[in-house]
Nucleic acid binder design. Structure first.
Lengths: 332, 332
DNA sequence: CATGTTTGCTTAAACGATTAAGCAAACATG
DNA sequence: CATGTTTGCTTAATCGTTTAAGCAAACATG
């Protein structure tokens, strides 16, 4: 029983005026007497008028929809946070969000982007991996990556977040801290660990990269071995890594935080669920999303042709979430 | 430098024919000689023709976009899996996916759905919570919930998955098994635990529901207390719960799986990362998504007016993923 | 050969909004 | 009062497709 929605001309008929006037009144653009405008809005409400986005899109060339491309793929553990923040910010801005997935393959990224473009998005938000270049798309693009990546529109201040964490560990008296990353090329990870190192300049740190094969293999990283070498704190580049280390230590009988401290990044949904709760660094996704959407919207409205858009603020502070997985350094 | 994309009439001009013929040739609908059709397709390719979805939508009333509404909100840990599977299936079917978030509030669900509708989706996929009723939307809706929920279109066979897990634990010789849920009203959870119980009919089981306050409080559930009472296996209704139990036991010095077994559901991304790896039951989201999209697409094409669509198959088997968190029952 | 049928295309009218241009009436200005 | 300006609306074109209807030419049939 799909009763067709009312259209502009039906409102017009009711009031015995032209459709153009109705359009003007509702958009507040042309010259319409205040009184008539009020009556028009009233009738529109009564009839439950909803403008046809298709018709508007055809006429104006703008669909009111933006694309969200998370690379390499949606499986990313951060995706829910990102998607939710972007969706909320976009909805507030009156925009719809279309998603695209690259199905893991880097090659398919191009296709995913074209897919969004073909569906007529006015612009897109891209969360790239490893400095993937996204260019010549033909619509404004906001990139959420890292402040030190060229082309970045806005992102969390990963370095600053790392610094906060470093200070925290220093204050707890740790003297041998192990930094664990899983992708030597990732700018985000390097920024995070760089911040940590900066704050820990006066203590011993060592960094291990669990790239590629060793990491995929699974058994690659043995935290207990490093614990035996005297490291009392493990800083990982993501909560998922932190969880691995945490459970690995626990399984081996190394109590956290009594004997060793563990920390992560991103505050994934399980960070607060584990025992002990995971100390981590959280990004303010809602703020990042709002800035990205704002910049994108402006670029769309001014019909800027520049591909990647710039924002007034390119980094937003991260916050340190102290839970129970970090504690005073073990007495020697 | 947004060079406007070519339109139908440009292809037509090039070949000195009418736009209608081009349209017919490309859609394969009207009567066009095989030879001309081939030439038309060739020119279309050369020019890189992409039909204007807006214009087509205006004319046909179909946007080629479906909505994905995950209730209550996108924060749901399963969202990445769902979104990815739906997006892939939709893309294969030539459809775009628009997302909506209810921002946690049940009230906002209606608004989220209207938001999708206003953006002109042809249909939607909804993953509801607690038998939320979704009705009278004015477009076909596919519900992914549970086979025993009325109105369900397709979903994983939660009961069957539970049964597999139960058999596994029985084979391991467990005699006292604790079942842990967090929402007494959830049909999905009841189905899962029902299946487990059915397979464990000859052993002692007890069920605790960590609903509302106790659960939110966090300190609500003390697994070690139950372990002390002689329970050797903990079956939780989700991996997140399982992770809580696992780390709680480990932190308290109860070794898994040597002393107690722990299992979850859904195979969330961290399930394989923890030590010991989490035994869990995984749903075949790609299959579920494909069926849902298929049914939805058909309803859209036949312009069925029935709101919630039916699928040929309403449940797809789950698979048991045996990792190291479950093992032989502890010797007494 | 007269008469139907099929084939292959064209014409033209939608779909529902936006918006430039136009035109009275009302008002202001000298 | 003659002239210019503003106000408030209407007319009509446009965005790019789809699709029903129409119309010759080609073909088939008795």
């Amino acid at each position: 029983m799909q009763q067709r929605p009312p259209k502009l001309s039906e409102i017009a008929e009711r009031l015995d005026i032209s459709a153009a006037t109705v359009s003007n009144a509702l958009s507040g653009k042309g010259r319409v007497s205040a009184d008539l405008a009020r009556r028009i809005r009233q009738v529109a409400d009564e009839l439950g008028y909803v403008p046809s986005l298709s018709a508007r899109a055809l006429r104006t060339g703008l669909t009111g929809v933006i694309g969200l491309g998370v690379l390499p793929d949606i499986g990313n553990p951060l995706f829910p946070q990102i998607a939710q923040a972007i969706e909320n910010a976009a909805t507030d801005a009156g925009l719809g969000v279309l998603i695209a997935d690259s199905r893991g393959s880097i090659k398919a990224q191009t296709e995913a982007i074209r897919h969004l473009k073909d569906h007529g998005v006015d612009g897109m938000i891209v969360v790239p991996r490893r400095g993937t270049r996204v260019a010549n798309i033909g619509c404004p693009v906001a990139m959420i990556d890292s402040p030190s990546t060229p082309g970045n529109t806005v992102s969390a201040d990963h370095w600053g977040g790392g610094f906060l964490l470093g200070e925290h560990l220093a204050a707890l008296g740790h003297h041998k801290v192990l930094l664990v990353g899983n992708n030597h090329d990732s700018i985000v990870q390097n920024d995070r660990l760089g911040g940590v190192r900066a704050a820990l300049s006066s203590v011993t740190t060592e960094t291990v990269w669990l790239d590629g094969a060793a990491f995929a293999g699974g058994a690659g990283f043995d935290a207990t071995r490093w614990y035996a070498k005297g490291f009392t704190a493990f800083v990982t580049v993501s909560d998922l890594q932190a969880l691995k280390v945490l459970t690995h230590l626990q399984d081996a009988g190394v109590s956290v935080p009594a004997m060793a401290s563990v920390s992560g990044f991103d505050d994934l949904m399980f960070a607060s669920a584990v025992t002990p709760g995971l100390t981590t660094v959280r990004m303010d996704m809602p703020a990042v999303a709002a800035i990205a959407i704002g910049a994108l919207k402006q670029a769309i409205e001014t019909r800027t042709d520049a591909d990647t858009v710039q924002a007034v603020q390119d980094r937003v502070p991260m916050t340190l979430v102290i839970r129970r997985s970090t504690g005073p350094a073990q007495q020697e």
